[in-house]
Design a protein around this nucleic acid. Sequence first.
DNA 1: TAAAATCTTGACAAAAAAGTCTACATTACT
DNA 2: AGTAATGTAGACTTTTTTGTCAAGATTTTA
Lengths: 170, 170
Amino acid sequence: MKISAQEEYGLRCLLRVAKSESGAASLPEIATAEGLSVAYVGKLMAVLRHGGVLDSVRGRSGGYTLAKPAEEIGLGSILLILGEPLFDETDYCKKHAGTEAPNGVCTNRSGCTLKSLWQTLEHWMRKTLDQITLADLIQNEGQLPELLRERLAAAVFADEPQLLTLNVVR
Amino acid sequence: MKISAQEEYGLRCLLRVAKSESGAASLPEIATAEGLSVAYVGKLMAVLRHGGVLDSVRGRSGGYTLAKPAEEIGLGSILLILGEPLFDETDYCKKHAGTEAPNGVCTNRSGCTLKSLWQTLEHWMRKTLDQITLADLIQNEGQLPELLRERLAAAVFADEPQLLTLNVVR
DNA sequence: TAAAATCTTGACAAAAAAGTCTACATTACT
DNA sequence: AGTAATGTAGACTTTTTTGTCAAGATTTTA
C-alpha cells in the first residue's frame, strides 16, 4: 500500500513543470531540480505525456508544458496515470478466486469481503484526491492537511447528506 | 499505491484463521482454501506471527490461532505488519531530498508539499482502517461499504467537531 | 520408539519494478 | 549546412518483491 517510485517522482516532476514560469521546463532542468537522472525523468515524462497531462516540444528550446490549466488537473487522475489503483476490478476475481469459486462465479466469501473493502477505500480516496488539483498543491502548500481534510469531509457527505444529522446526534 | 501481494494474501489467510471454528487452522487447510501453496502460506503466517497477531502450535494437531480476540484486531495494524505505510517518515526526506536541500534541512518545496500530502492521507486512512476489526470483516460482510463510510466520517470529525457546523452551512 | 503431521528457517529462483544506456528525431541558432 | 540542445523509444541492467525448495524441529498417535 505504499506509493510507488513512479507515482512519487512522476508527481514531483509534474509539479516542477507546473511551477515553471519561464515557458517550457526542460529535462535537464527538472532532473537537476529533483536530483534525478535525465534519462529517468525522460521516462517519467513519457508516461505523463501519454497520459495526456503534458505537452512536449522537441528541439533546441523545447521542453514540457501542462496540457491543461493546473486548476483542472486533479491528483487522483494523475496518480492513475502514474500507477495502479488500490483496487482493480478487471483482474481481481481472476487472481484471487481461491478454491471456493470453482464455477467461475465469485463465491469466495473472504475474497469478496476484501474486494468490497478495497473498492470502498479506493472510492473515497480517489474522490478526495481528485478534489485537490495541481494548483492547490502549489498555492496552498502550508494548509494542505486542512485542505485535504476538508475535501475528504465534503466527499464523505456529498452523496447522502442525511448522514450529517446522523452524525450530529452522536 | 496498489495493495501488495503480501498484504492481500496475508489478510486473507488471517481471515481464514479467524473464521476457523474447529480449533487451530493448519497450513494445508488455509492453503487449500485460498488456492495458494503451503510453502507460501507458511511464509505469510511467519510474518503475521512475528507481528504478534497469531499464535502457532507445532506438531501433529498443530496450527494457528489468533493471539487476541478478533474484535481487538484492527485492519490498520494488520496492514502495517504485512506491508509498508503510504508515508514512512524515517527515510522519506533522505530519499527524496533533491538538490534544493543541500544543507540537510529539508528546503525542498515540492518535496515537502508531497510529504505533508502523503502524511495526511496516511493519517486518515490508517485511522479509518483501525476502526474496522477482523470481527467486522466476518460479521458485517454485506454492509462493509456503509461501515467503512461511517467510520471514515467518524474519523474525519473526531478531532475537531466544529468542522461539522462548517459543513452544515454549505 | 517410530511414524506421520505439523510448523520454522534460510537459501534459492522467478517475476516485476526501477533505473540506465544507446541510437535517433526534431528544432534553434550561427 | 552544421552544430548544439533538446525530446523519443526500446533494449538492457539492477534491485526489489514474490514465490519455492529443502532441511530441520516439534508434537501426537500407534
